[in-house]
Nucleic acid binder design. Sequence first.
DNA 1: ATTTTAAGAATGAACGGTTCATTCTTAAAT
DNA 2: ATTTAAGAATGAACCGTTCATTCTTAAAAT
Lengths: 204, 204
Amino acid sequence: MSPLSEEQLIKRREAQRQRIVEAALKVFAVRGLHGAKMSMVAEEAELSAGQLYRFFESKEELYITLIRQVAEETAQAMKSIYDLPGSPFDKLRTFTASILKEESAQFPFKLIQHANTAEDVPDEAKQLLQQFTAKRYIEQLLPLFEEGQRMGDIAQGDTRKLISAFLTLLSALITLNMPIDDDHQMPDADILMRIIEGPRVRDR
Amino acid sequence: MSPLSEEQLIKRREAQRQRIVEAALKVFAVRGLHGAKMSMVAEEAELSAGQLYRFFESKEELYITLIRQVAEETAQAMKSIYDLPGSPFDKLRTFTASILKEESAQFPFKLIQHANTAEDVPDEAKQLLQQFTAKRYIEQLLPLFEEGQRMGDIAQGDTRKLISAFLTLLSALITLNMPIDDDHQMPDADILMRIIEGPRVRDR
DNA sequence: ATTTTAAGAATGAACGGTTCATTCTTAAAT
DNA sequence: ATTTAAGAATGAACCGTTCATTCTTAAAAT
C-alpha cells in the first residue's frame, strides 16, 4: 500500500519540522520578523521555499511556533542556573560566560528582543511572550541573588533592580550583534560580572 | 523685485535642509537605513515626501549627509568630555548620565550602530564611519582613563580593553531601545559605572 | 503675470509570500 | 528486477504590497 509506514512517516515529518524551526530561529533571531524572509529560512534549512508550506501554513504560523518553543526553552534554561556548580556568583558567571561564548545560545535572546520591540508582531506571539516576561525571570533568580548577597559575593542594594540591570545589560550585549573585528571586541563575562560583584578589595 | 534677498533665501533653504537632516537623524537612528522610509522622514520634518527631493536628490544622499554630520558631531562631543568638571571618573559619569537621560543624545549612537551592522550601506557612508571608528574614540579617551587609573578612581588593568568594554556596553544599552514599561527599566549611569569603577571597600 | 513652493496623487519597479504544475525518490508490491 | 504510487521536492510564476521617485496641480509669493 504505502511506501513508508505511518509511524516512520510521522517521525520523519516531525524531524523535518523541527529542523525548519531551528533554521527559523537562527534567521528570525538575527534579522527579526520582517527582515527574515521565508526564502532565507528555506536556505538555512536546506530545502525549497515552497516546501516550507507543507509544514507551516504561513510565515506567521512558523513564527508563532518558534516563539512558543523558545519561550519554553528559555524558561527552562533559567531554572537550570541553579544546577550549576559553585556559589551563586559562580553559577551566574558560568551561565553568563556560556551565553557570551556560544552564538547559538544567543539566538533565543535576540529573538525575544526583536519580538518585544518590533511592530506588527502577531498577537498570539505577544501573548506567549507576556507569559514569560523579564519580570518572571527576575522572580526566578531572586533566591539566587539573595543568597549571593548574604554571602557577600553579590553587591548589596535593591535585589530586583540589580537583577534587572544585569539581565538588561546581558541582553543588550547579546543583541548588539557585533562584528568581531579589530575595532570592537565582545567584553567578556568577567567585565559584565562587575555589575553585580560584591565589594572588592584593593589589589584583587 | 523680491522682498527676500538672495542671501536670505539661501539661508532659509539651508535652515530647512538642516531641519530635514535632524528629522532624518531621528528616523534613521530608530529604524535603520532600510526600516526608515522617506515618508517617515517627511512626516517628522513636517513636509511632504515629494518636497524632500527638492533638498536631497535621493535617500542615499540624505543618508550620507546625515552620517557625515553625525560623525563629526560625535567626535566633537567626545572631546568635550574633558571639559566636564571633577575627576576623570566624575567626567565620565556625567557624560554617561547625560546620554542615558536624553533621548536625543542617543540618536547618534543608534545611527552609527545601525550603520555599522546593516547591510547595503552606501560605500561613502562606510568610509566616513571608518574615519571615526571606536578605535579612535579609545585613543581619545586614553589619557582620561589613565589619569583615573593613576588616581585609583578607575579600575586597573588593560586600559584600552576597559574603555572598549565600557563604550560597547554603553552603546549596547542605548541601542537596546527599550520600552520603558513595568518589566524593563533603563539601568542608570551608576550601574554602568561599576564596570570601570576602581576598588570599592566594604560598606561603601 | 510669472515664478516658487507645496501637497498629494501617480508611477513603476522590486520584493517576497504563496501557490502550483511538474519532476524526483523511495519502499512496498508484484 | 520491475512496477507503482505516495510523498517529497523543486522552481517558476502569481499577485498583492511597498516604497522611492516623479508628476500634476494649485496656492502663495513676488
